[in-house]
Design a protein around this nucleic acid. Structure first.
Lengths: 342, 342
DNA sequence: TTGTATGCGTTATCAA
DNA sequence: TTGATAACGCATACAA
């Protein structure tokens, strides 16, 4: 079965001629196979295969007022938290007839709004956006969108449509509670970028401290710079200089945690005795580090795949029983870096 | 200037009516502004702005037999080597009228071939593919493609069209030479995935050893599993068990190097005295690690951005003087993990 | 410099 | 179940 490479633009019409039917029938064989007779269907399929026909997505989109793309808007290319999300998205889209169109907002709400506008112009099959912090205009656009919209990475009270993620606030509280349960009494906070999602994590940290009657003192250190391993080291240095009593840190993400670990080693702070460290996201390296690092596991790949599935579900049926909000939760992964008791 | 949100599909015709010209003029104002009178151009621009007009990409593609997408085919979503490449690509495409369409081959040549076929069907503005190891069919497709094609990540003798990258073979030789120059006499090799690009790095390692009359012994350890920090630890463990004389390692990438470092620490091997470590790619963490880790810096973001630029150049002109091959080179970043002398 | 007319490849409406 | 035919929104001859 040698596949034709020289398919210099074979079109639906050519397939139709080859079989001896009208183009309309070929179109139906592709879109609504069930209304085409078995006999024709197989002949058409064979012709498509032998001619190497591939439909023109532009023509299809123009005629059907619907393109087969799933638009995805993420805040960052480089933050590898989103690599896993993308992996899930692409995996779930693979094998379907939908293709993925990616846009990056660079954490800029206005840029996100423009991307939404742009993507909507293509009449996509579905739209996946990150988080719950859209501009008002963006919210309006999403509200009017005539396609399923899924918000990922977070859960919240009022989804535009559907939503899959977890509570960053609760996750941060749980992480902080873990530190306290391990006997740390002066936990600090290391944050970077400090986008709204991160802010909610800080809020969780603070509320948990308060719930235990612990004053945060000068132990919250953050910056709006994007996070990095290097930055984690710098932030820990600042923190320890400003608040030497700090005996544990909750880091907004694993890069900061890793950098903080290295800095702690440079300062000859013993982990976990002198300093407990907890990261966020539980990237693969956390378990492999020496010492291994505690983190909050999040289900990033599942969020991506789940979001696509939510769109597919929406296409082929109604609302979900769970009110269209899927909370994937999180999981504290206790490791050596916070193993003070026992 | 409140932007219309309720642009329920305003089309070129609406803009034209609003200004009192024909749709063709609006079209020209967008595509060939220079042939439209100054007066009309500004009026049209104003109308577009106030009506919130956005062109329909499908209609545009259909009518012009050319879509404004730049197709990009990468092997992996999760390998964050490619995050930086994507960052470069998206940055360079931003502000142009082109949008990026991403496809992932999962390191499967056949899957890459299918993606090329699929993307070409959209008559893209340009195509960016990874490396030089396409199937014959894919090569044929690229050869016939009626758009600029850029191969990234690598240089090689016979580009399909244009090429931007570096020599993995030379980079590996240089890294190995660095280890030897630092006084290590029994360097080992840690590899994962072992795709063709990685194989060429291994070849470089071997040839450099040979050039110094060093026998590789049992010090080459690799696996086809995808690389990870954890795997780096396992591989080092295997290597040290099989070849305890090993005094340095060249790792196929930074994740392996980091994992090897952790494993070395677990085994109480002193870095760099007992074991020198060199990674590949020079991710941000390498300089921040404790001890800091030597690596081979590669210009990933620049490859992405450069690839887009090559396409843009091709569109607006002829061939480059340099034979259409851009070699971005690499740079050895010597750090503590190989600082044995001095 | 601008307008008119036609076509891009597919889907959808309507008949048959 | 299938076939003609008219959109879909825009770009480009060609004419003016």
């Amino acid at each position: 079965m040698k596949k034709s490479i020289e398919n210099k633009s074979v079109k639906m019409r050519d397939v139709a001629d080859h079989v001896g039917v009208s183009a309309a029938t070929v179109s139906r064989a592709l879109r609504n196979p069930e209304v085409v007779s078995e006999a024709l269907r197989t002949k058409i399929a064979a012709a498509i295969e032998s001619l190497g026909y591939l439909p023109d997505p532009a023509a299809r989109a123009l005629a059907s007022t619907r393109s087969d793309v799933i638009g995805v808007i993420l805040p960052s290319v480089t933050n590898n938290v989103f690599s896993a999300v993308m992996d899930g998205i692409y995996s779930a889209a693979e094998g379907t007839r939908y293709s993925v169109q990616l846009g990056y907002s660079r954490y800029a709400p206005l840029s996100e709004e423009n991307l939404i506008r742009l993507f909507l112009r293509q009449r996509p099959t579905g739209l996946i956006v990150t988080g719950i912090d859209q501009t008002d205009a963006a919210k309006a656009l999403l509200q009017e969108a005539d396609c399923p919209v899924v918000q990922i990475m977070e859960t919240g009270p009022a989804p535009h449509d559907r939503m899959i993620g977890f509570s960053h606030y609760q996750a941060a509280r749980a992480a902080t509670a873990h530190l306290i349960a391990q006997g740390y009494s002066q936990p600090g906070f290391l944050g970077a970028r400090m986008d709204p999602r991160t802010q909610r994590r800080l809020q969780g940290f603070r509320d948990e401290l308060r719930a235990h009657g612990i004053d945060e003192g000068r132990r919250v250190h953050s910056t709006t710079y994007p996070s990095s391993v290097t930055l984690g080291g710098h932030l820990l240095a600042q923190l320890m200089d400003a608040a030497p009593e700090t005996d544990a840190i909750f880091c907004i993400n694993d890069d900061l945690a890793l950098g903080a670990m290295f800095e702690a080693q440079r300062r000859n702070l013993r982990i976990p005795q002198d300093l407990g460290i907890c990261g966020f996201n539980d990237m693969e390296m956390m378990g492999a580090a020496e010492p291994s690092l505690t983190s909050v596991r999040t289900f990033r790949r599942e969020m991506g795949a789940g979001a696509v599935q939510l769109i597919l579900d929406a296409l082929s049926g109604g609302a979900r029983p769970d009110g269209n909000i899927v909370d994937l939760g999180f999981e504290i992964m206790p490791r050596h870096s916070t193993r003070r008791n026992s």
